[in-house]
Design a protein around this nucleic acid. Structure first.
Length: 657
RNA sequence: GCCGGCGUAGCUCAAUCGGCAGAGCAAUCGCCUUGUAAGCGAUAGGUUAGGGGUUCGAUUCCCCUCGCCGGCUCCA
């Protein structure tokens, strides 16, 4: 009898010997950790994965990013099993984990109803309770075809895997390398096969290991995301490592709903979308208008200081301009249809400002002495967004960009990009966003204009500028537009959601198309580099982001009403009115609530309007020449002398608090 | 655009089976004169999104249009 052969593996960083035939699960058990899967040689594997000589095994815990993905993917399988048990005619699409949850697509005759979801959730609970094992087995392409003959969509995926009709619709589907695998759901006691699915894995050891899940909604989705493909019914769910984590997520969703800018816009009387005007076209009410004005004023001031020149361009133009820029070739669908004028001339509403700025640059001969030339405009543009994608202020059909184009020499480009990024981040911080990461979109080798050399140079300049900021930098390989590399600033808001904010985009195409040039010091004519940038993206969108970030409680400098005077009784109105008048003289926005309501009600109203400062005055305050502060967080400070009170509010506004 | 859901007073929502369209808040007008989140009363407010159909009768059932909401990107 020979000794049991041994394998040498690296277990969570330390070298170990284990018996041949040991699985990842067994190896990690010795480590005494609660794990649901393993990374074996960097690849995610089930715990049942058999180890080989030299494998490096790392535990994957359920609360890790990978662990959650595995949990959610397993939950998707349980959902699919439940669906096929209750709707035997349902055909399977795909069921991946997604951020915060999972989905699974099904081809069914009738869309799922909310009560279907309830039944499915119950069925899923039964499956989870049973503790079915996820058993993995490898199959050949032909074997998979045989087993899944009744699943047309799975068959299609097998076909894609073997490259059969990969190019048929041109859709990019990445199918994992290696053989196909099927996961069997096996009853733990009877060993009965309950269900199976073609799947790359990995999965949890058993369905019992799904601690908390919930089905969220169902909606249609095109098969493989292509508009021309049939629509399947998609069920979304969420799954978490503990019941508390699920609860926290549901609370987060509630919080996000409370902050929804469309809801707050109505509640705080900031803006609306009158039907009479049309989808995606907002009107700003006085309170929204003043916030917007403050946002613009501050931005203008900062741009002025940063050496921008202010220009102004019209909203409509002859088609010729967008023929020249090329937009009509590839962007016509996104534009409002043309207006035909006398003589058969087409006019368009502008979907972007760039070409008009280029014409300004090109209005006369330019000298190198004028560069960098920074042209800035709050430019209103109109884009015909598809009806289903319009969404409040964040996806509107008419909106105003804080748009600027910087024309500089190649030598100036790197320095310009560097100072620009600093400027952008500084300004965003002034508006109260301070948690950023950057995304660098680089050349798509399939589709680009300009020389490799200039791409290389500008991409490196962007990268260097980004790295200097010391922020997280995410690469978006091949994500750039054909005309130049781009850096975008992503901001996390108060509840951790990320929003794409500013973009800085180098453009090699427009200088060519518009034949832009300047005279260099040596008298030669040279082409400038164009840098396109927007900080807010659009004022409307930025407005919405700030509204949601602050949950409507804008800092004093942006608040539409900065303070409300609240008299204890009518007789105290003149005193507050005099104080308010003085503060208005200092440029503050102050109301005095002289309505018939009693003082408690006035506080409630001011509180609901999220006014930063409430100034109460009754006999006691007047006797002392003071007011009593109530802040919107509910705290208070009584008997503050008028001068001090004035200074406190002014300081808050001045310091943009 | 596609699929599904929804559309009743400024806002939030009721209205049994197809049988006179209602409440709270907001608004207006009174009364009350008040110390930290809703004082009391009265008045006004509607072509039930718009159009068509079925019916003795439609907010309710059917069709069309418009608008809004969710999803259609994260890939066995």
């Amino acid at each position: 009898m020979s000794a049991v052969p041994e394998l040498r593996i690296t277990l969570a960083g330390t070298e170990r010997s284990v018996a041949a035939g040991t699985t990842a699960g067994q190896a990690l058990e010795a480590d005494g950790r609660t794990v649901i899967a393993a990374r074996v040689g960097g690849e995610l594997r089930d715990l049942a994965w058999e180890l080989s000589e030299g494998d490096a095994v790392e535990p994957v815990e359920i609360s890790s990013e990978d662990g959650r993905a595995i949990l959610r993917h397993s939950a998707a399988h349980v959902l699919a099993q439940a669906v096929q048990e209750l709707f035997p005619e349902a055909k399977l699409g795909i069921g991946p984990p997604v951020e915060n949850g999972f989905y699974y697509d099904f081809d069914v005759a009738e869309p799922f109803t909310p009560s279907d979801l309830k039944r499915l959730e119950k069925k899923m609970q039964e499956i989870v309770k049973q503790g079915q094992r996820f058993d993995r087995r490898e199959v050949t392409d032909d074997g998979a075809r045989e087993e899944l003959a009744t699943e047309p969509y799975k068959m299609e995926l097998i076909g894609l895997k073997s490259g059969a009709d990969q190019a048929a619709d041109g859709a990019s589907v990445e199918v994992g390398e290696g053989g196909l695998t099927i996961y069997d759901n096996v009853h733990p006691r009877t060993g009965e096969l309950c269900w199976k699915d073609l799947c790359r894995g990995p999965h949890l050891p058993t369905t019992k290991a799904i601690p908390a899940f919930k089905l969220m909604r169902s909606a249609a989705a095109y098969w493989r995301g292509k508009e021309t493909n049939p629509q399947l019914q998609r069920i979304y769910g969420t799954a978490w490592e503990t019941k508390d984590a699920l609860k926290a997520y549901l609370t987060f969703l509630e919080e996000a709903e409370k902050r929804d800018h469309r809801k707050l816009g109505t509640e705080l009387d900031l803006f609306s979308f009158p039907d009479e005007i049309g989808s995606g076209l907002a009107v700003f009410h006085p309170k929204g208008g003043v916030i917007r004005k403050e946002m613009e004023d501050y931005s203008r001031r900062r741009h002025e200081q940063a050496g921008y020149e202010f220009v102004n361009t019209p909203h409509a133009t002859k088609a010729k301009l967008f023929e020249k820029s090329g937009h009509l070739d590839w962007y016509a669908d996104g534009m409002y249809p043309p207006m035909q004028l006398d003589g058969g001339v087409d006019y368009y509403l502008k979907p972007m400002n760039c070409p008009m700025h280029h014409l300004i640059f090109d209005a006369r001969g330019r000298s190198y002495r004028e560069l960098p030339m920074r042209l800035f405009e709050f430019g209103t543009v109109y884009r015909y967004e598809k009806s289903g994608v319009v969404h409040g202020l964040t996806r509107a059909r008419g909106f105003t960009q804080d748009d600027a184009h910087i024309y500089c020499s190649k030598e100036q480009m790197a320095g310009e990009l560097d100072s620009l990024l600093t400027f952008v981040l500084d300004l965003l911080r002034d508006y109260g966003l301070d948690d950023f990461y950057l995304e660098l979109s680089t050349k798509d080798p399939e589709k680009y204009v300009g020389t490799d050399e200039v791409w290389e140079e500008s991409t490196e300049a962007l990268r260097a500028a980004a790295e200097k900021q010391g922020l997280e930098l995410v690469l978006d390989p091949a994500g750039a537009a054909f005309y130049g590399p781009k850096i975008s600033v992503q901001a996390r808001d108060a509840i951790g959601r990320t929003w794409q904010m500013s973009t800085i985009q180098v453009d090699f195409n427009m200088p060519e198309r518009f034949d832009l040039e300047f005279t260099a010091a040596d008298g030669t004519r040279q082409q400038p580099v164009v840098i396109h940038r927007a900080l807010f993206g659009s004022i409307e969108r930025f407005f919405a982001v700030l509204l949601e970030h602050y949950a409507g409680a804008f800092p004093a400098w942006l608040a539409p009403v900065q303070a409300v005077g609240i008299p204890i009784a009518d007789e105290h109105v003149p005193y507050l009115e005099r104080f308010a008048e003085r503060l208005r003289g200092e440029g503050l926005r102050i109301d005095v609530d002289s309505s018939d309501d009693r003082m408690q009600k006035k506080i409630r109203n001011a509180q609901k309007q999220k006014v930063p400062f409430m100034l109460l005055a009754g006999d006691e305050d007047i006797a002392k020449g003071a007011v009593s502060f109530r802040y919107r967080d509910g705290s208070q400070k009584n008997g503050v002398p008028l001068d001090e009170a004035a200074e406190e509010i002014l300081a808050a506004v001045r310091e943009r608090r």
